[in-house]
């Protein structure tokens, strides 16, 4: 078990390095291939009228003239030992782990991300709980009452959920419940530590819209899985043994049907932790997704790099967890 985890962690670090290298290349190599010079790259970080002086100063300060591999090395080094930049009378220190200094707003990236994690985490966890519970419950119910009105209605709603994009359901829910009926007026993120009640209340709408999108998929998957397992021989055996129906459904049917769901859940949840980009934008929540958008629209590489790495980190971790959970719920999986 320990060897397995160490092996996986090592692979994860390697993977993160590759991800950061690719992100770095997209920002610094691709524009060059497209014919851009370092001057035009530097000019993006200066206001309306970049003077040659300012361009030279910015290039020197951000090290844009160095070869790309050297810049990448500085970035990686910064994460481990920190870095220093000259943005004023005294050098500004970028503390460990230094994910860089924003080229545009001159703030350290890591504290910004840390400050935004609670927002994204609140969104993701709450929505995940709702979508897993409702999705699985609806899926099981539909499978057991196959062909009934409930089944058809549930699957109909599920189809709508899968097909309606977030920016549509999000805006519609805002238009209805915030602007029209003003149930949630002045919707903004309130930290859990400040006021748990308000925290939950203000998150209900985003949770529900996010969960609507995902639970649909989960309901359909659970239904399909349940239909399959409930037809298996061992279910008939269980029933023949005289087990209670509830035990048959939950312990023998659902458990087997859940395995593929866990994999997908791991991925979905990890992706959300990397920033619910559209949801955060629609509800004006300042999470990691909103941060990533800011970074992209301002061509502010350190912001994009930071969010990409954190998101990749979550995906790697969640995948590892999923593999471990597999062993627990599916007796057929052995780690060795």
């Amino acid at each position: 078990m320990a060897a397995y985890i160490i092996r996986r962690v090592f692979a994860a670090v390697l993977l993160l390095l590759v991800v950061s290298a690719v992100t770095f290349a997209i920002f610094f190599l691709v524009p060059r291939l497209g014919g851009q010079t370092t001057d035009s790259l530097a000019a993006q970080y200066i206001g309306k009228s970049p003077t040659p002086d300012a361009i030279a100063a910015v290039k020197k300060n951000l090290g844009l003239d160095d070869p790309v591999y050297l810049q990448f090395w500085h970035f990686i080094k910064g994460i481990v030992v920190g870095a220093e930049y000259n943005f004023g009378p005294n050098p500004s220190v970028c503390h460990v782990p230094c994910f860089g200094y924003s080229f545009k707003t001159h703030v350290e990236i890591w504290p910004e991300i840390v400050q935004r994690i609670p927002v994204t985490l609140s969104l993701a966890v709450g929505a995940a709980v709702i979508w897993v519970l409702s999705g699985v419950a609806i899926g099981v119910l539909s499978a057991l009452k196959r062909g009934s009105i409930i089944d058809r209605l549930a699957m109909g709603v599920a189809l709508a959920g899968v097909s309606l994009p977030m920016f549509f359901t999000g805006l519609v829910s805002l238009a209805l419940f915030s602007f029209h009926w003003t149930i949630w007026e002045g919707l903004e993120f309130v930290p859990f530590t400040e006021n748990p009640g308000q925290w939950a209340w203000n998150l209900i709408l985003p949770w529900c819209t996010l969960a609507f999108l995902y639970s649909a998929l989960y309901a359909r998957l659970t239904r399909a899985g349940m239909l399959e397992t409930m037809g298996e021989d061992y279910i008939r055996t269980a029933r023949a043994k005289g087990l209670r129906e509830s035990k048959v459904v939950v312990k023998h049917g659902l458990r087997a049907a859940l395995t593929p769901l866990v994999t997908i859940f791991g991925m979905d949840f990890a992706l959300l932790l990397g920033g619910a980009v559209i949801t955060e934008r629609v509800y004006s929540f300042q999470g990691m997704g909103a941060f990533a958008i800011q970074g992209v629209t301002q061509s502010d590489l350190p912001k994009v790099m930071g969010v990409t790495l954190v998101a990749a980190f979550f995906i790697v971790v969640c995948n590892l967890l999923v593999d471990l959970v597999y062993a627990a719920i599916d007796p057929r999986v052995r780690l060795s």
Partner: peptide, 18 residues
């Protein structure tokens, strides 16, 4: 087929509410 109709109905309702 039924579920598709339901979805369409829901979409229309939402759009009208908007």
């Amino acid at each position: 087929m039924n579920s598709r109709k339901t979805a369409a109905a829901i979409a229309v309702t939402l759009a009208m509410a908007l």
